[in-house]
Design a protein around this nucleic acid. Structure first.
Lengths: 166, 166
DNA sequence: CCGGCGTTGAGAATCGGTTTCAACCCGAGG
DNA sequence: CCTCGGGTTGAAACCGATTCTCAACGCCGG
């Protein structure tokens, strides 16, 4: 049930980002470093709001335009991945160069659990091929209710009558 | 390789929707019917803009607030599905009560091809179970470049370096 | 045919995200 | 160090999608 803690080396990613900037003749600015750090040193899927808030707590003020621009850079560099879980905004996570993975999303508490699967890899490659597509990447999201929330819901249903609405 | 034309019976879905409204003591209004029809009788993944435009062509004027409200109703009723292909707005498609499917999205032309796969069904069920989740639904999107666009890209690359036929 | 209650729709508000542009900073060259 | 120039920054304006507001309206049971 508990997923293993991500073995992400934020410092290493940050170094790669610095080198990426240098290689592309782009200035290594303080803002770029702190925004990148926020994501690299987090094991959550952060939203831009999360990043803004986190920076404010650290007394690092960075305009949101710069946050978005840095995220775009990081995505282009292939160091982070953008996700849309249908909340009306996007979330970002450091991209462990390792294999791709899917997301299990709890409709109850919003928790996101990552998983990877060779089966998934093989299947999407096969499917793309069948339709003449050159595969770039895929995105699998499984929505459901996690064990905890199932327990809570069951308890709630005991104490309340059945609501026809939701 | 070509995907079969959708065997969606729009009329049946519309009937289900009417019954759903009656069962929930909600008025069956003209607006609700025409908005639902737009989606039920289309085999595309329509955006709200598409729906507005389509209704305007039919000389059916429906406020966008009502369109959104009807879409929410339809989604709650489980008759349509909401999709976000990262275009900055959402798209909707009638939900054939049948099996779920995934989407192949061409990064070149934006074309969306549907596919279904028992393998996918089994895999997501298994994955959810492994993590203690009660599966609700899943969403698989495979991004790549379709055959046509691959051809066009190849041709473009030719003409930029080598003077040849168009 | 009536009345109540839910629906409708125009417009305003919200909200995530992008653009603008003048001030500013990184970093190569003196 | 100092200087310069192009890329970067950020406040605010802008944008498009979606939601909210609220008075007028229409469905439907009686």
């Amino acid at each position: 049930m508990t997923n293993p803690p991500p073995p992400i080396d934020g410092q290493a990613l940050l170094d790669v980002f610095r080198r990426y900037l240098q290689d592309h003749n782009l200035p290594v600015t303080h803002q770029r470093e702190v925004v990148a750090s926020m994501i690299f040193f987090s094991d959550e899927h952060l939203s831009v709001g999360d990043i803004e808030r986190g920076l404010a707590i650290r007394s690092e003020q960075v305009g949101k335009a710069t946050i978005y621009r840095t995220l775009e850079l990081l995505a282009t560099a292939g160091l982070i991945e953008e996700h849309d879980f249908g909340e009306g905004f996007k979330r970002y996570e450091p991209l462990a160069a390792q294999s791709q993975h899917g997301h299990l999303i709890c409709s109850g508490c919003g928790r996101v659990v990552e998983f990877s699967s060779d089966r998934l890899e093989r299947m999407s490659a096969l499917t793309a091929e069948e339709h003449g597509f050159r595969l770039h990447h895929h995105r699998l999201e499984i929505y459901g209710v996690c064990g905890e929330c199932q327990g809570r819901d069951a308890a709630t249903l005991q104490t309340t009558s059945v609501p026809s609405r939701e």
